[in-house]
């Protein structure tokens, strides 16, 4: 299936910002089940600094906001050919060793809630890892109900698990933390999703991938309770959201920020 994507991100500030840098990870990856036909990014209100492949082979761009500016708009668009692999991505192409994805990060450090969640599928996981992970995905989806507005980008997996609510990012974090707790390498994927009947989305999507011996990386989208198919476009990978985030920035001063995101994914 060929997907056409338009993604606009706008940051506006209530007063001029003297200095700000943004790391952008917005270019879809070429790889298993996915081929980028065309892709273009442009920014206004900021100037491109450098572009490179980061340690997870994400195409990363650094841009600097124009001095004393009050808005930045980032526009990415293009077409990606996607194939349905039922979530099975297979072996990775990067140099990152598997053990790196077994270590918890600050955002995915398990606490009691996550440990309990993990142990509920421990036996199933031991008997059949793939089945165990499907069960974990179901369990997370029940334990952390999809609710917008109750968490933010800095909410940790354990916090979300405790609160029992969160968005796709929180659900992915909880799943990652629990999977790692069971000894399975796990990683975060940020990307796009074609949603039936929803032309205009207000955020990018995020899910996780778990390493299953014999299959390699397998995707799990807790929020939609399925394994990613040909409606999913993988953009960036990381140990958690922070490393795979579409935009990661730092700015001087205390201006109030307002974020507007518009994502259109069409066939």
């Amino acid at each position: 299936m060929r997907l056409s994507i338009t993604h606009t991100t706008t940051y506006s500030y209530d007063r001029p910002v003297s200095y700000a840098l943004l790391q952008l990870r917005l270019t879809p990856r070429n790889g298993a089940g996915q081929k980028v036909i065309s892709w273009q990014s442009s920014v206004s209100g900021a100037s491109p600094q450098v572009q490179y492949e980061d340690h997870f082979r994400n195409v990363t761009e650094l841009v600097q906001m124009d001095p004393e500016g009050t808005t930045i708009t980032i526009l990415s668009q293009g077409e990606v050919e996607v194939e349905n692999l039922n979530g099975v991505i297979g072996a990775g192409t990067g140099l990152a060793p598997l053990w790196l994805f077994k270590r918890p990060t600050a955002a995915t450090k398990p606490g009691n809630t996550i440990r309990k969640l993990a142990s509920s599928v421990k036996e199933a996981f031991a008997a059949d890892p793939l089945d165990g992970m499907h069960k974990l995905s179901d369990a997370v989806s029940k334990a952390v109900r999809y609710t917008t507005g109750s968490t933010n980008v800095t909410t940790s997996a354990e916090e979300a698990a405790k609160a029992g609510v969160g968005v796709c990012q929180d659900q992915a974090h909880v799943m990652i933390a629990a999977a790692r707790h069971l000894g399975a390498p796990a990683r975060y994927v940020s990307g796009y999703l074609l949603m039936d009947g929803l032309n205009q989305q207000e955020a990018t999507h995020g899910w996780c991938e778990i390493w299953i011996m014999g299959l390699g990386w397998v995707g799990f989208d807790v929020a939609n309770e399925i394994c990613p198919d040909d409606r999913y476009v993988r953009v960036a990978l990381g140990r958690d959201y922070g490393e795979a985030a579409p935009v990661h920035g730092l700015r001087q001063g205390d201006a109030e920020e307002e974020l507007y995101v518009s994502v259109q994914v069409q066939q």
């Binding site: 600094q49 450098v50 490179y52 990363t60 650094l62 730092l250």
Partner: peptide, 12 residues
């Protein structure tokens, strides 16, 4: 220095 690692990885 914010961004120095990006500049480093980019070879600058």
């Amino acid at each position: 220095v914010p961004g120095i690692m990006d500049v480093y990885r980019a070879g600058n």
